[in-house]
Design a protein around this nucleic acid. Structure first.
Lengths: 203, 203
DNA sequence: CGGCATCGTTTGACGAACAAACTAGTTTTG
DNA sequence: CAAAACTAGTTTGTTCGTCAAACGATGCCG
């Protein structure tokens, strides 16, 4: 292609913020920078995690669920910036894949607490390495210590934003925590209705 | 609400990466962090720039166009991660608002070069302050020097990504650059057809 | 002059996000 | 204790943005 378009001249510097430090008022690119980095992250991650039910989303959920106390779906949705309604079928698929389980909180039976299964933790461990590797690639333009620094600052900023979130509540209690898993696999819900799996062969 | 839900207990640490440095494998939150920050940025920006034709997008375009040589639409779209087809009506609206102008490159009449009008530059100057102020708010969780550092690193990462972009090519020449603006306001194109302003009353 | 490539525009379709209605369960109030 | 009010989760429908393909116009090259 362009086998005969030998044009050595290039756009000099129209890029929003190329040549940092050169133009004084050009450091208003935060949105652009984040969008570029995040998009690349997303691209690579989706192809790297294509075997997880919902790609990078599934990973986020799995990672958010695996460590401490099983959070409620609402709490999960809020942290991960995912709509409640989306969270529903996202968890449907993760559960179908045997990665997480929904258990009814005995203290408040409206609430489903999401916890990772053994298999889920195993998968997470494997996938996490892939994620780390991919992230390194995305930030390949930075040297190692700067990468680390960037991650750290981004995280601090994000945590601060989430904590200062308007609707974010002070009430997401754990009660006493289930302890044993003798709650039955929900049983409720899922009473028929079309599967909104999307993704599959549509039309 | 919850006027009487005095539950001091909180989720200890389910957040993907709260308490940084505590758990070794938890620094895989880059995607989450960026998503949170970017979303907040977007929210605030859209409300702060509601008077620009396409909000933060319009700002990006205006800012990318104002400094150096007028880029082609394709180059703009590539830099700003906007689809060609979207760029079309985005520029339609910016032009309608008198902020930019499309001029046919005399050297290659297929190409439209986008440049800011006088009014566009004025508006940009005003808006830029608003943007900076809003960004400070978004990064309020960081102290001032860290904010600056974060911006700087993010930009470096983004620039590196864009330069290493796969499809990004070495051919986006400027030729000799127009020089004078005696090209007439395109005239071509826009030959009837529905306005895809969307947005309006659909069905 | 005839094929091939590129830029910009238009059109169409698909998927994700958002909002609203509904059920089940819990808490509050008269 | 019963009714009202509220929350968690699911379901449904609508809307919006993004992406892919087709088209007209222009330029390049043999």
């Amino acid at each position: 292609m362009a086998s005969t378009t030998p044009e050595p001249a290039r756009l000099p510097d129209t890029r929003p913020g190329a040549d940092p430090g050169a133009d004084p008022g050009a450091d208003t690119n935060l949105g652009w920078s984040l969008a570029v980095v995040l998009r690349r992250w997303h691209e690579r991650m989706e192809s790297a995690l294509s075997d997880l039910p919902h790609g990078s989303r599934g990973y986020h959920v799995l990672a958010a669920v695996s460590p401490g106390e099983p959070p409620t779906q609402a709490a999960l949705a809020e942290r991960l910036l995912i709509d409640r309604s989306v969270m529903t079928y996202l968890l449907d698929d993760l559960e179908k894949a045997g990665l997480v389980r929904r258990r009814i909180d005995p203290g408040d039976r409206r609430v489903r607490r999401v916890c990772a299964t053994e298999h889920g933790r195993e998968v997470l461990a494997v996938v996490r390495e892939r994620v780390e590797h991919t992230e390194e690639q995305v930030l390949a333009g930075l040297d190692a210590p700067t990468r680390e620094l960037f991650r750290h600052i981004a995280q601090r900023a994000a945590v601060a934003i989430q904590e200062a979130s308007p609707a974010t509540d002070p009430c997401a209690a754990v009660r006493q925590v289930v302890g044993d898993g003798a709650e039955g696999p929900v049983g409720t819900a899922n009473r028929g209705g079309r599967r909104r799996t999307g993704r599959g062969t549509r039309n």
